[in-house]
Design a protein around this nucleic acid. Structure first.
Lengths: 278, 278
DNA sequence: GGAATGAGTTCCAAATAATGAAACTCGGTT
DNA sequence: AACCGAGTTTCATTATTTGGAACTCATTCC
């Protein structure tokens, strides 16, 4: 029996330390100890020790000059493994590529994490790809194409939990800012099999998104094609819907025999994962 | 050549938990509990609790079907912040781009982490950039261009510590596999201001690398241009050395006024970092 | 000049959480 | 039916974490 305690706060010391890590990351910029203290539920001495521990573990980096903390590079190393093994990105890659080529528009691949949309891959039609500028980025679920596509296929108890965590901030006049409006939209997406973003997050930006569903109906992620109102109409995008759904289905198909792409256990020099790269 | 006993051992429960996380990541593939147990210094029950905690914190993901653990997606989210704030990548980006364009070869940007080379950015001359395929990847320090360039400028006590953690595995006949040979090479690099990889890590792959040094002489990272023996000779690469050094110096110059690119603190909706992206 | 403020750091007794040997469960084998 | 091995739970013991308060060391203010 697993504790279904969502937002599990009570994970002992480790949980609290990770909570501190999250808080630092949430700032989106280097933070001073005092700022962190203000926004944390921990007493000064306790917070201080956490920050110390995390820093000399490399999970936080400390700028001696400015006395600020930021998420540390050790995370980058760990995330590489996470991205390759626990995200849809590696198996979806060829299909994301193909969709980008076929549509000549920006393609996003996202998963749901902590009631937010987590972008795990992106193909940008024109400019050179900016690494990480996409993978790892988070966005709101209630007002993005991929977010709504995923929510639409969430079973009720979880859906409610996710909805309860949305901020319903009105980014644009088109943003759906009530639970009722959102639920209606989700029903439409469920019926249609794909959804749109009608400039709900950013003016001038529209998209079509399709859910990536496992054989058992579990939502794994979503894929979308994004454009601007200057270049395309919603109608244009709707024409692309079959392509988007096709990609989603193909990804879901491969996700079935996911994990253990190879179970080789080669003898490696002690230093860990060693891959060919200069 | 065995388990590098964590230098940071005295970090209490949190340190131990993060050690477990590292071990999972080091496998490079999903791991079963029993496998982890074999390679961990923790008793069964203790390891079990760590793995439980990490899993419901989202730092590990658990595959119910296969009963395996892998680094979790929460790491991807955290790493995004780390990469943007604590790595050289964002400030180096334009220079990495420029160097790639000027040389039409693959460019790598790396930092030193845990005595290993951590690639934080990459520009691939030909194929489309593969996200993360580079950022976050780690490699050996003693036999790569960037690794040696960084080691060459490490002050003695730290250098010894880093050398002691190298595995000195002979990837190719050209690999330097003794401390003496490596130290001689590092001296040459120090004198010259840049270094090579003469097929030491992978047959047919060569590179020139320059260190990125802060004003105070601290090593921040390294940048390299990589090619194949089929396309270029070491001599060709040496011609490129000034360009590589130039890029390194320009990056170092900007690294001075690093941090706080903006210290704006915009009012954000509750959901945390919200950036424009569909 | 010196008092007052504020950020960061250290102390330590009490409170709490981590530990790990052993026992247990469960699904599959022999 | 007994066995086995992987995974899970228990619980008394032990070690760590906790946090109020006091301290340091700058800077600012009067």
């Amino acid at each position: 029996m697993n504790r279904v305690d969502r937002e599990a706060k009570g994970d002992g010391t480790v949980g609290k330390a990770l909570d501190v890590l999250d808080r630092v990351a949430a700032f989106g910029r280097p933070v001073r100890f005092a700022e962190l203290l203000e926004t944390s539920p921990f007493p000064k001495a306790t917070l201080y020790r956490f920050v110390q521990t995390l820093t000399n573990q490399g999970m936080l980096s400390f700028d001696e000059e400015r006395h600020t903390y930021a998420p540390g590079i050790r995370l980058v190393r760990l995330a590489h493994a996470a991205w390759e093994q626990s995200s849809l990105a590696p198996i979806a890659r060829p299909h994301v590529d193909a969709l980008a080529r076929a549509t000549r528009e920006t393609v996003h691949l996202a998963q749901l994490d902590h009631a937010q949309v987590l972008y795990v891959d992106k193909r940008n039609a024109e400019e050179a790809v900016k690494m990480y500028s996409s993978a790892g980025k988070v966005g709101p679920a209630y007002c993005t194409g991929v977010g709504k596509a995923m929510m639409a296929f969430l079973p009720e108890p979880e859906l409610q939990a996710v909805i309860d965590q949305q901020s319903f901030h009105a980014f644009t006049p088109a943003t759906l800012i009530t639970e009722a409006a959102l639920r209606e939209e989700l029903a439409a997406i469920r019926a249609r099999g794909y959804g749109f973003d009608r400039e709900e997050h950013e003016a001038g930006i529209i998209c079509v998104a399709a859910p990536i569903l496992s054989a058992s109906g579990q939502i794994l992620g979503a894929i979308s094609v994004t454009s601007t109102t200057a270049r395309r109409t919603l109608n244009d995008l709707e024409q692309l819907a079959p392509k988007v759904r096709g990609a989603a289905e193909r990804i879901a198909g491969e996700a079935r025999h996911w994990r253990f792409p190879d179970k080789l256990k080669a003898d490696q020099p002690a230093t860990g994962t060693v891959q060919c790269q200069e």
